[in-house]
Amino acid sequence: MKILVIEDNVELLKDIKNFLDEQGNVCEIAPNYQSAYMKAVIFPYDILVVDITLPDGTGLDIIKEVKKENIDVGIIIISAKNAVGDKVNGLEVGADDYLTKPFYLVELNARIKALYRRKVYKGSKEILFNEIRIKPGSYEVFVNNRLMNLTKKEFDIIHFFVANKNRLLTKEAIAEHLWGDHIEMVDSFNFIYTHLANLRKKITKFGGNDYIKSIYSVGYKFSE
């Protein structure tokens, strides 16, 4: 997948680029409006990750330009402005998704993948990880071709894990993914712990491997 990340903070830009590169994407960067506009209009990308506040312009204008040129690209806004107006404006000019800073890189990654799937495969594409097969469109997970009976949150967890395989998913990132931005719940870590245990049990019962590893006590990693 070809991704252009437009973000004025160079350090954050590097973080995002490294993360996305390691996921096997081709990730290009633009730290300001000028270079972002040039790249977005000339080169074909699958996904644009756009920061609203740029030193020489606004990300909204880039989105408008791209839409004016009829370029077919998925757009995710990343903004610190957390303002409702921004979100509404962004989605109105044609962005597909909106993330408020500070976001977890794993969350951005999952959103990019989901958006890409929606755009290119219209959501019909299955996600494969060895014996595990996920059908995001119908919220179904198969292990060794057997349909697992999962709750909604369990599905969200495994989907999130597979989208971010080999990466550390902190409990905070998982909690925010499951419940959203403004809910910090005291019990969410216990909840995640219990449901992960359930998930492991279910997968192994269906003859799958246990890919979920606890990393120190901060989070989990889904890897072979």
Partner: peptide
């Protein structure tokens, strides 16, 4: 505040995850 603090916080967080990884 929202903009200038959140971005550094995001970076701190990312680096900490890298350290943990």
């Amino acid at each position: 505040i929202a903009h200038e603090i959140q971005t550094p916080l995001a970076i701190i967080r990312n680096k900490m995850v890298l350290l943990l990884e």
